[in-house]
Structures are given as structure tokens and as C-alpha cells.
């Protein structure tokens, strides 16, 4: 019997400190057993349980794209027991990952559609995966216009800064990077909260355009009315949720929202689905 609680062994290949407060680090992990990489076939939007032996597990969205081979990548905020310990680990250290878990963004549905990605703070990880996935030469033609509105408190708090600059330079993706405020005179992008920038930059809704939102609750709360004004239907607004998890496979019982488990039925839900669910997230 396959044991769904047994993680694949992975080795930390590289650690990148992402933000100026040093609370966010990206871990690039390589499978110890190459066959495991094939078993870990995932889609952008899924997550995995990172297992640090002796400390426990944490559910983290996969930040790499399935088009990136040879490694998987996770960006982890330092908050609790496991994540704090993970932040002290070094390249070469062994750990485990379990997954891929949960559903993904609805890539079949999004085929041929325009995609507006709206992200805030450190909830940009699976959005990065999605952008890299869509921009892959083999995939770009499968999608229409791509808009990305991504904001953080300050320039130093943006994730994946080099990649953001690279995407800015391309003409097949509309980047709208913003910060809440900055005193950097050389800042050449937007200043303002994500909802404000969304109002200014996001395209008008139509049946062919879907919005994917990921961010802190406060950002979502103020962005949703903006999307409503722009005419986005709630079945065209796609969100990725978080809840405390342990098993990641719908058994341990804690991450439910009504009858749905965030770990197994989610983490991706449309706003239309969420409207019919209790607000327990």
C-alpha cells in the first residue's frame, strides 16, 4: 500500500533570501531519487508538504513551474516552528516533500483565455509558477493577453525581483508592479495599493478574461469590489486559499470550509464557489 504520508527525499540545492526583512527565503530542492521527480508531476497552483525531519511539516505552494525541470522551488515565510527551522538550514541539507497536493489553477479552462494575475506580498509564489508556465515558449500561444498586477509594501519586499524586471522587458506580458510606498528616487514602476492599480490597469471584464487573485485578506477584500466594477463575474475570479493543514490529503479534518477541504478540494476555488461556502478561512 502506498503511504501518502511518506515524503520524497530532497536535498536543498540553493537558498535565496528574497526580501529585505530576510523573512522570505526561496528553497530550490532536488530529488535524491530521480524517479521521484516523475512521480511528483504537478501543475501550477498546487502545493506540497515540506517535511523537516524532527520538526514537522508545512503546506507551501509550489513556486516553480512544471516547465522548469530538475528542481522544485518553494518560497517560505518565517512564521512558525517548521518554517523558522527551515530558515536555518543550508544548501546540501536533506529534507522531504510530499505531494503534489490539492488542485491547481484551472489550466484547461484558461486555455485560449486572457489571464489577469493579481498578487500581493508573499502570496505570489504559485502566481510566479503560473507566469513562468504560461510564458514558456511551448505554452505562450495557448493563452491570450496576460496582465500581472503585483504589489508589496516596498521595493525590497517584492519576491523574484530579477524575474519581475525580465518580464517587464518582454512584450508578451503586461506587468504592473507596484509598491505601497517608497523613498527610492530610482523606482520606475507604480506606487499605490494593489486595488488602486487594479482599477487603473486591469482590463475590462469579458467572457474570455479570468482573474487569479492571491494575497492577504485585506488586499482581497478591497480588490474584489474593483473587479466587480470592472464587470468580472464571480465564476471568472479564481482564488487560492490557505488554512492550517496537517495531512494535506483530506483526512485530518482541520482545513475544511464547509464540506470542502482546502487541501484536497482546493486550494483553488472560484469566488462563485466561495460565495456558497461558510467564511471559515
Amino acid at each position: 500500500m502506498q503511504n501518502p504520508y511518506l515524503p520524497y527525499a530532497v536535498r536543498i540545492e540553493d537558498i535565496i533570501t528574497e526580501t529585505e526583512d530576510k523573512n522570505l527565503k526561496t528553497f530550490k530542492l532536488a530529488f535524491e531519487n530521480p524517479a521521484d521527480e516523475e512521480k511528483f508531476a504537478y501543475a501550477a497552483g498546487q502545493f506540497a508538504e515540506l517535511s523537516v525531519t524532527g520538526k514537522g511539516e508545512i503546506p507551501i505552494g509550489i513556486a516553480s513551474s512544471p516547465t522548469e525541470k530538475g528542481f522544485v522551488m518553494f518560497t517560505v515565510n518565517k512564521v512558525g516552528l517548521v518554517s523558522s527551522h527551515l530558515h536555518t538550514m543550508q544548501p546540501g541539507d536533506l529534507m522531504g516533500i510530499r505531494g503534489p497536493l490539492g488542485n491547481s489553477y484551472p489550466w484547461e479552462l484558461l486555455e485560449g483565455k486572457n489571464v489577469v494575475i493579481i498578487g500581493g506580498g508573499f502570496a505570489f509564489t504559485t502566481l510566479r509558477a503560473s507566469i513562468v508556465y504560461m510564458l514558456d515558449p511551448a505554452n505562450r500561444s495557448r493563452f491570450g493577453d496576460i496582465h500581472v498586477i503585483y504589489g508589496a509594501r516596498s521595493p525590497g519586499m517584492l519576491l523574484y525581483r530579477d524575474e519581475l524586471a525580465g518580464w517587464e522587458a518582454r512584450d508578451d506580458i503586461h506587468m504592473h508592479i507596484t509598491v505601497d510606498a517608497t523613498d527610492d528616487p530610482h523606482w520606475k514602476y507604480n506606487v499605490g495599493f494593489v486595488p488602486t492599480i487594479t482599477e487603473k490597469k486591469a482590463p475590462q471584464a469579458d467572457a474570455e478574461t479570468y482573474a487569479i487573485i492571491c494575497g492577504p485578506p485585506i488586499m482581497i477584500k478591497f480588490t474584489q469590489p474593483v473587479l466587480d466594477n470592472l464587470g468580472y463575474g464571480h465564476d471568472h475570479i479564481i482564488m487560492s486559499l490557505e488554512n492550517r493543514m496537517k495531512c494535506g490529503i483530506g483526512m485530518c479534518g482541520r482545513c475544511n470550509i464547509g464540506r470542502h477541504f482546502v487541501c484536497k478540494d482546493g486550494p483553488v476555488f472560484t469566488l462563485a464557489q466561495l460565495n456558497g461556502m461558510p467564511k471559515e478561512y
Binding site: G54, G56, E57, K246, R254
Partner: peptide, 10 residues
């Protein structure tokens, strides 16, 4: 009731 928690103890 089936809910559970997972913990490492070293």
C-alpha cells in the same frame, strides 16, 4: 470522530 494531528518528537 476521526480528526488527527501530526507531530514530530525527537
Amino acid at each position: 470522530c476521526w480528526c488527527f494531528d501530526i507531530q514530530d518528537e525527537t
